[in-house]
Write a protein that binds this DNA or RNA. Structure first.
Lengths: 368, 368
DNA sequence: CCTGTGCGCTAAATCGCATTAGCGCGCTGT
DNA sequence: ACAGCGCGCTAATGCGATTTAGCGCACAGG
């Protein structure tokens, strides 16, 4: 056999199964059976198989997935509808995970974005069903409570990073925010912190959290639970409508100036932490030595800060994967509203110091 | 008419065009013509049209796109294949723009990711063609030279954020990096800077740029062109293999310690700038007052830094849009390798100060 | 009265594959 | 010798739309 000569195959008409069959001198049926791996089952001889495979090779035949989908009713495609893939940049990892899981199972993803528009959401879900998707993942970019649009009930679906407000049969995949809160609290406890601990992002005097944010509520609950178990109480908190650096800066400045002792901050995301770092520096203090900081999300910026920011990571990649896995495992009436929680791993860096490391420790005994 | 009672339509079998036709008492053909807006052309009476539309309304008919695709050969779907959507988080805006442009033209996006694997790339492109996509956008997450995989030639396609190494018929959409370089340089010139200007990210003594990076080459070329026109020369540069904060920090530290006067830094991306800020602070200097900084990309972090980082933005959203527009405007043999450049807008913040603002200006006269 | 023409609609083929039902052949058993 | 039974394969149908070819009817013209 000579060296495989490869001409740049022109954009010519595609080869069909019928042509392959004709070339191999068999029926289309036989070719179909062989190519779908049902040779044994259909007792097609090995010779015939060889002829068909050769014809496939020679013609460069590729099955037309559209046609197959029409016949079988499923397109090996999954719809991924999100409110905002792009506006929350690093949540692209949700898609990444979903993409990987889908590819492993021979699926592609059809994606669309609603930008929070409910009508558009319904429309897009229907457009996807029109394309015979096997199922739909409805993703939110931050963990929140959402309404399940009716259109979603027309077939298999999964909520990603969202919980239904009402009872529903649609399963959810979300990060385990409560455990993340406990994890952050335990970390501070282990470093010896028992007082002068503030949360930045949510209020505690009257509990106050950004609207609809599951993350805020569950993280706070987790934090208070873990502290409560050790008899420790938060010294205060600062509510923020959105968790951006500027708000974090102002809030932290407020905390640092008006209270007595500030030993640790639990910032509700990394952007807030960025602001907190700036405020700590402005106050002539040093993160870790004077004020410990724990954060959530683990965005890239967490590793860019100095000292490196210890953060409980949002497992976006894993969430994306899990959503696809749950979706594809769904059959019929199963699923039934189950909530799958994915662990949020702790990324330890240098922003937490031992209690009293930077100052003498007058308050240590006073605790409890 | 009573209030529209809405029962949660069960996941029942879909209504087909045949059923609609039967219900309206007309042939499938007629129904098809009406629904595809060819009523006038086919001289279908208005009454018949009304009957059909009513039947559609009553049954909630939605056309099966798969079937239509089989017949027409196109699925109103565009393939979007990227090397890494997710690893470079904020480039998700590429997808965002593409998504918007596609939706405006009634298309959905089928996406996949190669993670740089050429074989996988070919495979995915073929998988998409198997699904009868109208065309394929092959996107790169940073502007670079790339090989056009053969599979791409099997139909319409566009390179996004990438240039072909060889002559090709595939058009490209990329940011106008050279103009961005000129823009950054002009900004410094306007602020009175004429010396003590360093680039961070690429070398200048022997020119040295990260492998395959169009951005690095063209930005540098633009910078030198704009400066050259005014008789200004770069005082030096620091090559970095990858543009991350740590490298930026080290490089800037080197520049600040070993040279005489450092008045301005042109950092080749925002991450490098993050490191540069830290190094400037460590040296007891202040950004803008002592050392001006201009950057590229305009990632979110640019606005988080203090003082805010002036940066020439990568127009990801616009790039994504443009790619889809170019793709859909492609017909047949047109396109033919045209390179579309999208303007990179300047985002002015506070990191550039007037030359000599922070010190007395002994060197000012010496220039030229 | 017959033919021709245009109007308004329909029958039927088609897209490419999966799948059900069944065909012809050779072998076995009585 | 003939029925019965697998074996190895094929004919034909259907998925749900689009589209080509053409049908019947009413009306006009000769």
């Amino acid at each position: 056999m000579p060296d495989g000569e490869k001409e740049p195959r022109a954009a010519t008409r595609r080869v069909t199964l019928a042509e392959v069959a004709r070339r191999a001198g068999v029926s289309q049926t036989t070719a179909s059976f062989v190519l779908s791996g049902r040779r044994e089952e259909m007792r097609i001889s090995a010779q015939v198989e060889a002829k068909i495979l050769r014809a496939v090779e020679e013609t460069g035949y590729r099955p037309n997935v559209v046609s197959r989908s029409l016949r079988t009713g499923s397109s090996h495609t999954i719809g991924f509808v999100s409110d905002t893939v792009a506006t929350t940049p690093f949540a692209g990892h949700l898609i990444w995970g979903a993409l990987d899981a889908a590819r492993e199972q021979g699926r592609l993803l059809l994606i669309a974005e609603t930008e929070g528009d409910a009508e558009l959401e319904t429309q897009l879900v229907e457009t996807m069903r029109d394309r015979q998707v096997e199922g739909i993942v409805l993703a939110s970019m931050y963990t929140r409570w959402a309404n399940v649009p009716r259109a979603l009930l027309g077939g298999p679906s999964v909520l990603l990073n969202a919980l239904s407000k009402k009872e529903t049969s649609v399963p959810s995949v979300i990060p385990d925010e409560a455990e993340a809160g406990r994890c952050a609290a335990r970390l501070l406890l282990e470093a010896g912190h028992r007082e002068g601990i503030y949360v930045v992002g949510v209020g505690v005097d009257p509990v106050r959290t950004p609207k609809g944010s599951v993350a805020a509520c569950e993280r706070l609950a987790g934090i208070e639970e873990a502290f409560g178990r050790e008899g420790v109480r938060l010294s205060g908190g600062a509510f923020l409508g959105d968790w951006q650096p500027h708000g974090g800066y102002e809030a932290t400045r407020g905390i640092l100036s008006s209270r007595k002792q500030v030993r640790a901050l639990i910032c509700f995301n990394d952007r807030v932490s960025v602001g907190a770092y700036q405020a700590v520096a402005d106050a002539g203090l040093e993160v870790a030595r004077d004020v410990s900081v724990v954060s959530f999300d683990d965005e890239p910026v967490a590793s860019w800060l100095r000292p490196g920011l210890t953060s409980v990571a949002l497992p976006h990649y894993e969430l994306g994967r899990k959503a696809i896995e749950v979706l594809l495992a769904l059959d019929g009436a199963s699923g039934s509203g189950k909530v799958h929680r994915v662990e949020m791993p702790l990324r330890v860096r240098e922003s937490v110091g031992r209690s009293g490391a930077g100052l003498d420790r007058p308050a240590r005994r006073a605790a409890k």
